[in-house]
């Protein structure tokens, strides 16, 4: 068991390291001089030289890389060019809406996907199954920004049930902020429920015909308990994986959804950084989000230990 944990941990570090390298490469492949691009056509040669120095672009690539690694190890993601603050602070400032948006989306997605997926598998081939499977495919085909706009049209503009956009100003109460999150979270929740539904259905189908499910029935147990306690618990492991990874990938959906709903979150920050070529911010956001993904992956591997007694090596 310790070996399992150590192996997974080392694996995580290795992937993390590769992620860092990829981010470094992405930002450096920019054709031309990033400093010149950032400052625009009106910049003087002196301005560009200053920025180059500030960004460390005047040093050899390998030194830049080592310096970059050193900075990261100290928890320093660099300085935003336009926001006049460290990238880490900029990200932290915008973390709250993104965190809650992701959390609520995943809750909504699971609340839809788990029951639907379980029931669809249980009634395989039935009308319910067919409708659920088709709807899941439809949900996976809808661009989240479009669904968001439709929700705004219907629920915010026509019925005025929810605010159209924003996060309620700097000193809005939690309830007000929450009301700003309902539409975006529902949008993202619906879109991401598709994958979880399909996965839940597939892993339930895998276990529903297993022998131990028949054993449970032969004990005289009710169908609900048979399905939820014996079948679903066995199907849960792959489903957990997908939910975890969906949560990590939702941050990507947040980029789009936050823009639609003008939520001042990390996604919004990234989009404006891209539009302004604020490379340190892009780089920092990429790093943090990919690291989150890798970390969630690791946590799921550890969850396996708790859920599945067979994982011990």
């Amino acid at each position: 068991m310790t070996r399992y944990v150590i192996r997974r941990f080392l694996g995580m570090i290795a992937v993390m390291f590769t992620v860092v390298t990829i981010v470094f490469v992405i930002v450096r492949v920019a054709p031309g001089d990033p400093a010149a691009v950032m400052l625009g056509p009106d910049a003087t040669a002196a301005d560009i030289a200053t920025l180059r120095e500030k960004l460390g672009l005047d040093r050899p690539l390998i030194l830049q890389y080592l310096y970059f690694l050193g900075q990261l190890l100290r928890g320093d993601l660099g300085q935003s060019i336009f926001l006049n603050m460290p990238v880490l602070s900029a990200l932290a400032e915008r973390a709250e809406p993104t965190f809650f948006l992701t959390l609520f989306s995943i809750l909504i997605a699971s609340a839809i996907a788990l029951p639907v997926g379980i029931l669809a598998a249980y009634k395989r081939g039935s009308l319910f199954d067919q409708v659920a499977t088709t709807l899941a495919m439809l949900a996976a085909s809808i661009p989240s920004f479009w669904l968001g706009l439709i929700f705004i049209q219907v629920f915010a503009v026509r019925f005025s049930w929810f605010p159209v956009s924003g996060y309620g100003g700097p000193d809005a109460s939690f309830i007000v902020r929450l009301s700003h999150l309902i539409l975006p979270a529902t949008t993202l929740g619906i879109v991401s429920s598709a994958l979880i539904t399909r996965f839940t259905r597939a892993s339930m189908l895998d276990v529903l015909n297993d022998d131990y499910v028949r054993t449970a029935r032969s004990k005289g147990m009710g169908e609900f308990q048979v399905v939820m306690k014996h079948a679903f618990k066995n199907a849960l492991i792959p489903v957990l994986t997908v939910i975890g990874l969906t949560a990590a990938l939702l941050v990507s959906g947040a980029v789009v959804t936050e823009t639609v709903f003008s939520l001042p979150g990390v996604g919004n920050l990234v989009v404006s950084a891209v539009l302004r070529r604020d490379y340190p911010v892009i780089q920092g956001a990429l790093l943090v989000i990919a690291a989150l993904y890798v970390l969630i992956n690791f946590v799921i591997d550890m969850l396996y230990l708790v859920v599945d007694p067979r994982v011990r090596y």
Partner: peptide, 22 residues
Amino acid sequence: RIIDAMMAFPDILLAISLVAAL
């Protein structure tokens, strides 16, 4: 390892970063 690491980036995020770089 590169494949694994690439999968760690949400697709839209990676795409806009690449577009920003290129």
